[in-house]
């Protein structure tokens, strides 16, 4: 191969590449979309993104009833967020349709909505039932605050653990390669047997 002849090709390709890269300005796009949803009061917040951490901008979000009926739909803002008032006290199935074949789902169980006290009936009931005692010790206040913080932070903690566990681990990658080479071994084994048989038949 004549090295001198093609050496000029590389810088030109790189230049071309960088120009194209800078000039393309398009929506985020990766191989997997993820949608998270959590309840705060009477509102459901959703956050949509791709597996590499980029937000899904302007993506369609559909909300379904437990029985499969569509309750509402909307589009994410430029941070990938979309929020809506709880339309019904039921399990909410939230479907993200990020386009180009990317789709993700998240279900909010009815219990989570109840716990958040979001649904109106629930809230009214709790308001009438309890009268708050006037005198509280510092410790009691601390406990109440911590308690409500815990409930508020739970979905966020879950979201974080969920997002951290999404990426493929080294063991999965190495495992996958191992599988492929294992299959190669099996293929070679069978080919080998066939060939051996073929030779034996010929010898007979």
């Amino acid at each position: 191969m004549e090295k001198g002849d093609n050496i000029w090709i590389y810088p030109i390709i790189f230049l071309l590449a960088s120009i194209l890269v800078i000039s393309t300005n398009i929506a985020a796009f990766a191989h997997k979309a993820i949608v998270f949803a959590w309840v705060e009061g009477d509102t459901v917040f959703t956050e949509s993104k791709f597996s590499d951490g980029k937000s899904a901008i302007g993506a369609q979000v559909l909300v379904f009833h437990r029985n499969g009926k569509q309750l509402l739909e909307g589009r994410t803002n430029n941070k990938g967020e979309f929020s809506f008032k709880i339309p019904k006290l039921t399990d909410l199935r939230i479907v993200l349709n990020a386009g180009m074949g990317h789709r993700a789902e998240w279900t909010i169980p009815e219990s989570e909505i109840r716990e958040a006290g979001g649904f109106l009936q629930e809230r009214e009931a709790s308001q009438t039932s309890k009268a708050i005692p006037v005198s509280l010790t510092k410790k009691e206040i601390k406990e109440i605050v911590e308690d409500s913080l815990d409930t508020k932070l739970r979905p966020i903690v879950r979201m974080m653990t969920e997002s951290q566990s999404k990426g493929p681990s080294v063991s999965e990658i190495v495992g996958g390669i191992g599988y492929i080479f294992g299959l190669m071994g099996v293929a070679i084994y069978f080919k080998n047997r066939k060939e051996k048989k073929h030779l034996e038949d010929r010898n007979d």
Partner: peptide
């Protein structure tokens, strides 16, 4: 017979390639 290892090597290359993001521009593929 000789081609089996080639297929396996390229298959694993394809398998791993999807983990290599191209972080150029606003899009990440």
């Amino acid at each position: 017979y000789e081609k089996i290892p080639h297929v396996a090597v390229l298959s694993s290359a394809f398998f791993v390639a999807s983990l290599i993001h191209v972080p150029v521009g606003p899009s990440s593929v």
